[in-house]
Design a protein around this nucleic acid. Structure first.
Lengths: 392, 392
DNA sequence: GCAAATGAGGAAAACGGTTGCCTTCGTGGT
DNA sequence: ACCACGAAGGCAACCGTTTTCCTCATTTGC
């Protein structure tokens, strides 16, 4: 398991402002600009927040947690009463509530969420399952969901399957055992995926990659609308010979964006420059390569709509090297608003943002609805947003 | 909360191979290359796995979960016996164990993890807390940790604080309520950070960003060794006039790497080309800009050691545009092995990989040790690995 | 033939909370 | 003096599982 050979350094080898015996190395290592040295905090007193905590730690590393019984004892009431006091339930004197609250604060009491889940039947927990692996697209969705759920006092189990079916079963099994209230499934592509069904009987929401079963709840970016906005933006800028360079034809995203591209052009009475959409890869080399083909097939081309920011960046590099000015000669629109590409591009890219964080949030809300029994099945498409920068 | 205006589409608007009434749009939308149509699965029978599940779902969306009592009843034994049978404990006839196992399988029984946690005092759950926000550096660490923990039947709570102290307290409070067995703290930078202490009394392991308190357990990449390997590689290739372009001097990473750079050169009797290390930003424009300064200060410079792949890529672009050949005239080494930069760079970058996934795994292992009371405090440095590509 | 050992399984306590019901007490009305 | 009633808080059941202790019944040993 622990195959790597590691270099160790005990507590003694920590930040030591004085030159250590094996000087060179450690001196260089921790040469921070501002010397935050080892003896910075003079054994900080910790203050009042440590009060009443002494009983909380037993011997042997396993600490005795403080329970409501402890609180009740300290307040001089029964556990039932303590519970009512803490939850503002039942009929209690105000003075009693205060006494219990005091005791709880003094002991640093936090109710055991598992115990109350046992009773309530709800765990206030959901699973975030990402097929493929957590990547550029699924991550913002996960974070958006985590944010929305966290605000509702719901904790989130992270499950990365890495596209492995075994791992997926394993995670689903674990989630079932933990009695999650629901599951959000996400992936890196927008192709629809087979539903989970087989395992659980908890609500499931599919984000990004919709379920093949239309009775499931899915939330996806409206790539069609996004692509449309990008193309319209080019048309509005007066461009008339527009080409489309995009990813592999087998990808749903490439197909949808291409279809939107064609239709939007047709509506304006235009035809794709270079004849047809150019399917290829989602990377920069393809962008660089494709741009040559396009200019060869249609030298008067005045705009490129690219299926991704990586392609667009490759295209921008290719154009620059060919001496073509962006946006002077050719305007450029990308897709994804992946900052690393779109802002590092020269010039910075106008691009379509799928608002994946918002997507995650909406998925989370939908899951909450479903958990409350108010699921509205179907595919919900969230609008994309055009971000205008210097390439158009 | 739900501010975005969304476009909806009910179940009816799902994949429809026949041209829908509002043809244009939907036709384009779901025009997948291979028509996975709506009526693909003929109400798939679901097979035996659904057997005995009928009792599992009550009315009103809240399903009655199957408990060990159900299993016991079906097997004709007491719950205690059922438990023993399922856990291979106690003295039971083989036939009885089999009967119980059968019943469990038939009902699709999975023990309620919360109930057993209540008893065992361990939740088999840990928190993954990321300060700053989940990004390029913290993500691989998180995933590595999740992987290692998942193998040990431990589930992981994802907590993103976004650098917000309020959110951090909130998450820590939630983790405490859920009685996690431990916490892994990670961040995007390698500067040391104040310890959590104040809140919990569970083991904590700091990954990537070490705790300021040397009595804590921290796991970090050995940037010093990594930088050394990168520089040595250049020296071994016969380069003698090597410059170092890196990020802001206030970053620990920049300082450590620069110190390693200087020392490694000195050991070989060399001096930094251009006189001093060039501190700047972690981005491409800085790489492009710095490379001009370097060549101005030291025209005979024959190698660049860059503090990040982004800087290196900027440098590569700058050099190409100046007509300098890489690696012919100048060799280039980056840092991070961030594929998007290092493989898209022209030429592909030789770079230092911090093996963050492994870092996460080791952090997870260390946490497990700590949970078992065998914590070994101090900072543990894991080796980086030099990845050789075409830029050297 | 009887005690002891063993095998198989049941009953109940425990984990940490919540909640419905009950008891006790004090007060006011008649 | 008696009844009713409301306030305050205790008691115990319950959630789902594990584990300890206990009870039978059947062997085994002598």
């Amino acid at each position: 398991m622990s195959k790597p050979e590691v270099t160790e350094s005990g507590p003694g080898a920590g930040p030591a402002p004085a030159p250590a015996p094996d000087a060179g190395r450690d001196a260089g290592r921790d040469a921070g600009p501002a010397g935050r040295a080892g003896s910075k905090a003079p054994e900080a007193p910790g203050g009042a927040e440590e009060a009443g905590r002494e009983r909380a730690r037993g011997r042997g590393g396993r600490q005795a947690r403080v329970t409501i019984a402890d609180v009740a004892a300290l307040a001089g009431v029964s556990v039932g009463t303590a519970s009512k006091a803490l939850n503002n339930r039942g009929k209690l004197r105000q003075e009693t509530r205060a006494r219990v609250a005091d005791a709880a604060r003094q002991l640093g009491f936090r109710p055991n969420e598992m115990a109350r889940s046992l009773l309530s039947g709800r765990s206030f927990t959901v699973g975030l399952l990402t097929t493929d692996h957590v990547g550029r697209f699924s991550l913002p969705v996960l974070l958006g969901a985590e944010d929305a759920l966290g605000a509702g006092e719901i904790s989130v189990f992270l499950c990365d399957t890495r596209g492995d079916a075994i791992r997926e079963r394993h995670h689903l099994s674990a989630l079932a055992s933990r009695r999650v209230d629901g599951i959000i499934v996400t992936g890196r592509r927008t192709d629809s995926r087979p539903p989970l069904r087989q395992f659980l009987d908890v609500p499931v929401v599919y984000a990004m990659a919709p379920s093949e079963d239309p009775r499931d709840v899915s939330v996806v970016p409206d790539e069609w609308q996004g692509a449309r906005e990008g193309v319209r933006h080019l048309i509005a800028a007066g461009r008339t010979r527009i080409a489309h360079i995009t990813g592999p034809a087998r990808h749903h995203s490439a197909q949808v964006r291409a279809a939107a591209f064609r239709e939007t052009l047709a509506e304006a009475g235009l035809r794709p420059a270079g004849g047809e959409v150019m399917f290829g890869e989602w990377n920069e080399p393809w962008g660089r390569q494709a741009v040559r083909h396009v200019l060869h097939a249609e030298p008067r081309c005045d705009a490129l709509f690219c299926g991704s920011d990586q392609i667009a960046r490759g295209a921008a590099d290719g154009l620059r090297e060919m001496g073509v000015d962006v946006p002077g000669d050719i305007a450029l629109v990308g897709f994804d608003n992946w900052d690393v590409m779109s802002t590092a591009c020269r010039p910075p890219l106008t691009t379509v943002d799928m608002e994946l964080g918002e997507l995650g949030r909406v998925a989370a809300m939908s899951l909450l609805e479903a958990i409350e029994g108010r699921a509205r099945p179907g595919v919900r498409r969230l609008p994309c947003r055009l971000v205008i920068r210097d390439s158009t």
